[in-house]
């Protein structure tokens, strides 16, 4: 399958500080690809390089087959960008903002008008299109940004922290919008997030990025499987439980702590009944059994050695994020 984004050894150094460190990855056509990592890990810097806003200091990248440094105009025409910040002008109406974007892409007036109205109704802002953006809520603003990013019918859409600062319901509705884009237009989406659920829910493939480096890459289920499968925890009294458990097919690891056994298995839901049956045949009763699926959280912990946390960010970045959060809450 064709790769819509290709980065090879992509690097960006700011005043001696390496924000993105020899990153190599590819995004296939029609895929939703996510960069997952803490704030300051280099996600936004990567997006800025791919969208021709920042120049790489090393390596190369292609978007839609065009080199981001040598053919920036061609890249710009074929992508849509929804930045982390709310960039719509508060003094202008939603419609005026989308039309501004249409003009920036050089769409003929009639075509621009048609698409603007289409997109505003797609993101359910049609009734508010003539209201000033300062009256919009966080979710409405985010949807407006989405409409702006889609005005040129991009082949690749870049979303930087698409649900930063939004409440749970609004987040879910933004997710639906993103998923429907792929469904309806076959769009390729590159997004960054520091929300694990978001990456898990939306992405076909994820790259975990930390300190500017990709530490792991794969589909959410691959990443979870890489941890060694599901975890069964059971309580059982009697002798020889551990031996029986080890003999079962699909069991990878058994840890005993008194009467409690923690069993790592490939697929919890198929192993659990077998396990109960085997123990029952020996006259052993299981008092309690629980099945835990690995979460991306655990993958994340395993790969980066720490939970998602804030790292050293530039003051500029902090202010941008505060502005975004402040506007999102209104």
């Amino acid at each position: 399958m064709r790769e819509m984004v290709r980065a090879e050894e992509l690097t960006r150094v700011f005043n001696g500080l390496t924000a993105v460190d020899h990153v190599t990855f590819g995004v296939r056509e029609g895929e939703i690809f996510g960069f997952l990592g803490p704030n300051g890990a280099g996600k936004t810097t990567t997006i800025h390089m791919l969208t021709t806003v920042l120049k790489p200091t090393g390596g190369r990248a292609e978007v839609c087959g065009y080199d981001v440094v040598k053919e920036p105009e061609k890249v710009r025409k074929s992508i849509g960008v929804v930045p982390q910040e709310y960039t719509a002008d508060e003094d202008l109406t939603g419609y005026e903002n989308v039309m501004l974007c249409a003009d920036l892409y050089g769409l003929p007036r009639e075509e621009g008008r048609k698409r603007a109205l289409e997109l505003l109704s797609l993101v359910q802002l049609e009734p508010f299109k003539d209201k000033r953006v300062e009256t919009y809520s966080g979710g409405m603003r985010r949807r407006l940004e989405l409409a702006c990013g889609l005005i040129n019918r991009p082949k690749v859409l870049f979303l930087d922290e698409p649900t930063l600062g939004l409440d749970v319901q609004t987040r879910a509705s933004i997710w639906e919008h993103i998923l429907s884009l792929r469904e309806n237009f076959g769009m390729t989406v590159f997004l960054t997030t520091h929300y694990l659920e978001e990456a898990d829910h939306l992405c076909d493939r994820i790259a975990i990025i930390d300190h500017g480096k990709i530490v792991e890459e794969g589909s959410p289920s691959e990443l979870k499987d890489s941890l060694g499968g599901d975890l069964l925890t059971l309580e059982c009294e009697g002798e020889g439980v551990e031996e029986i458990l080890r003999a079962l097919e699909g069991v990878r690891e058994v840890k005993a702590e008194g009467r409690e056994y923690r069993v790592k298995v490939t697929r919890g839901e198929t192993v659990a009944p077998l396990l109960l049956k085997a123990l029952g045949e020996k006259g052993l009763t299981v008092k309690r059994l629980s099945l835990a699926k690995p979460t991306l959280d655990e993958v994340y912990l395993e790969k980066t050695g720490k939970s998602l946390r804030d790292q050293g960010e530039s003051p500029e970045e902090v202010i941008k994020q505060r502005v975004t959060l402040w506007r999102a809450r209104r």
Binding site: T51, T52, V53, R76, K77, I79, V81, E85, T87, G106
Partner: peptide
């Protein structure tokens, strides 16, 4: 600062 410039720079303008 508001990110508007970055958005404009990513368009063909």
């Amino acid at each position: 600062r508001l990110g508007f410039l970055n958005k404009v720079l990513s368009t063909p303008v």
